[in-house]
Design a protein around this nucleic acid. Structure first.
Lengths: 138, 138
DNA sequence: TTCAGCCTCATACTAAAGTGCCAAATCGCT
DNA sequence: AGCGATTTGGCACTTTAGTATGAGGCTGAA
């Protein structure tokens, strides 16, 4: 916030300077009024663009649509291992492939998948993935 | 594009009018130069904001992350029916459920799924869904 | 140390999913 | 009418998935 205030102060100061310069130039007759106005217009146009861009950026950062995980995982009582398996399942891996990936037996994966299905209230792994995505768990 | 040209023409015309009005007011002595400059500054500031917003919007429309389908479906030679089945599969439905939904036999669904798998180069339906999402086909 | 919860694995089945092959019906196009 | 692609479906099998049940090992908390 300190930074913002400093920037604004500098900005206002610059603008005032610009005004003074414009009037001074006019009085001394160095430039015509059209040029002064054109410069001022350009400067403000630029300020408008920059400020707008910044405010839009902030918006983006504040609310990115795909907010990753959540504490819903806890609510559903999904354990660490189960979550790992869930992720692997969502990548389209078979039980055997998941087993190899995690250095476990296929039986173990089946156990985990089974409990995942009941916790996610799904009948098939495809449905589980669907539900998990809706809950933004993956 | 016609619209854009018209808008720009109107904009430029308005600005010229503004300039003329400003000079006229100055000459007749109705307002001070500061006010004229302030108005011009404000107007250009506004123009900057609006134009910037529009250009950013266009960017968004041109490349929004979740651009729905694509002509990749054609490239992959996926037929209409197959695509319908693909969507159903991605919803986590079983072959039987898809069959009921589309008023077809389970055999037919299996045929469609099978050809989908080979076209998407997948080994399992879960993988097919994954790949389809990467290709932004669903 | 006792115990609940998690992780691991096995066995035995049942149920889905997938494959291959074939074939009839439909549809758009020439 | 004839052709090619699509759609539909059956049958016989092989592979995965999923369920049920049981059980041993590990760990942190009471």
């Amino acid at each position: 916030m300190k930074k913002t205030i400093l920037v604004f102060a500098a900005l206002i100061f610059s603008i005032l300077l610009l005004f003074q310069l414009g009037e001074y130039s006019l009085i001394t007759g160095n430039v015509t009024i059209e040029i002064v106005i054109a410069i001022i217009a350009l400067v403000f146009f630029g300020i408008g663009v920059v400020l707008n861009k910044k405010s839009l950026q902030q918006k983006k950062e504040n609310q990115p649509q795909s907010e990753i995980d959540a504490n819903k995982i806890e609510e559903l009582e999904i354990t660490n291992r189960e979550y790992e398996v869930l992720q692997a399942v969502s990548e389209g891996l078979s039980n055997k492939e998941i087993a190899e990936k995690l250095f476990l037996s296929e039986s173990t994966i089946k156990t985990h998948v089974s409990s995942l299905l009941s916790k996610l209230n799904a009948k098939r792994r495809t449905q589980a993935v669907q539900i998990a995505k809706e809950l933004q768990i993956i």
